[in-house]
Simulated scan of single mutants.
Amino acid sequence: MTGTPPGRPPVAAVPTGAVPVPDLVRSVLPGRRLDPVWRNEAGGLTWRTDDAGPARHVKWTPHGAAALDIPAEAGRLRWLAGRVVVPEVVAVEHDDGGTVLVTATLPGRSAVDPRWLAAPEVAVTAVGRGLRAFHDALPVEGCPFSWTAEHRLARLRPDVPAEVRARLGDVPDVDHLVVAHGDACMPNTLLDDDGRPAAHVDVGALGLADRWADLAVASWSTAWNVGPGYEDLLLEAYGVERDDARVAYYRELWDASP
């Protein structure tokens, strides 16, 4: 994501300056030029390469980054294949320093690409419509993954205050159960050249949840990425009226999660 909610340091962004490439990353795509495109909050890095062979994205995470489980993401990508448009898994490798996921690069640009930041209404509308299509396309029955509030409550950050834990223990009734994206922030929707939702990326937390687990964060991310005033546009594009209680709950849960 670009930008972070209150309480988290704003460290997720396009890397600047020299970015060391781990030996594992070089070994999976030997001889290829690697252009860094993202650094996340847990120290993980993503590169893109499109020279001398098929275009690929390479995501690397250091060992100990509990919030970034590459084998889990690879399993989710394989489950999603043929159901919605997501990157194809090419390889998963690991060494003593970390784990790497290689995926086929998809056409399209992130909703926070400069082209779409210059047209925020188009980008926000596409993210809302894309999230609705994602939820509608995926079968709840048979989904082997969980992202329910109860599942997440067992994995809160250790520094979360007792009063926050107590509030979060009062879980709202499920409005509508879906296969949730798990990180539906704006950067994780790709748009085609006409500004329509084209694909989704970064699905490592995907699982069954109330749709508001995604909607609360997707709408919140409009403020981090394009500024205030766009939350209702995203919800309108999705096709739902704002539910303040569920929005507040799932944002607090997001901020308390790893």
Rank of each mutant, 00 (worst) to 15 (best):
A126M: 08
C185Q: 11
R152E: 02
V140P: 04
L153P: 02
W147I: 02
R132C: 02
D173A: 15
A162D: 14
A126K: 00
L156V: 08
L156N: 02
A166N: 05
C143N: 02
F134Y: 15
H176P: 03
E163V: 15
G128W: 12
P144N: 05
A137M: 11
G130C: 05
H135I: 01
F145T: 04
G182N: 00
D175G: 14
P161H: 13
E150A: 15
S146I: 06
G142Y: 07
D175C: 12
C185G: 13
D170C: 12
A133T: 12
H135D: 05
V174P: 02
A154W: 06
D159R: 10
G142D: 07
E141S: 14
H151C: 10
R132S: 04
L138G: 00
A133W: 06
P172F: 05
R165A: 12
G169D: 10
L131D: 01
E141C: 11
R157Q: 11
W147E: 08
P144R: 06
A133M: 08
E150T: 14
R132L: 01
L168I: 06
D170S: 15
F145C: 04
G142M: 08
V160P: 03
V140M: 06
R152S: 03
V178A: 09
P144Y: 06
C185D: 10
D159A: 14
L177V: 14
L156F: 07
G169L: 14
A126R: 00
W147M: 11
D170N: 13
R155H: 11
V178Y: 04
F134C: 04
L177I: 10
A154S: 12
L156A: 07
E141Y: 09
R157L: 12
L138P: 00
D136K: 11
V174G: 07
L168E: 01
V179C: 11
R157E: 09
L168A: 07
H181M: 11
L131H: 00
A166G: 07
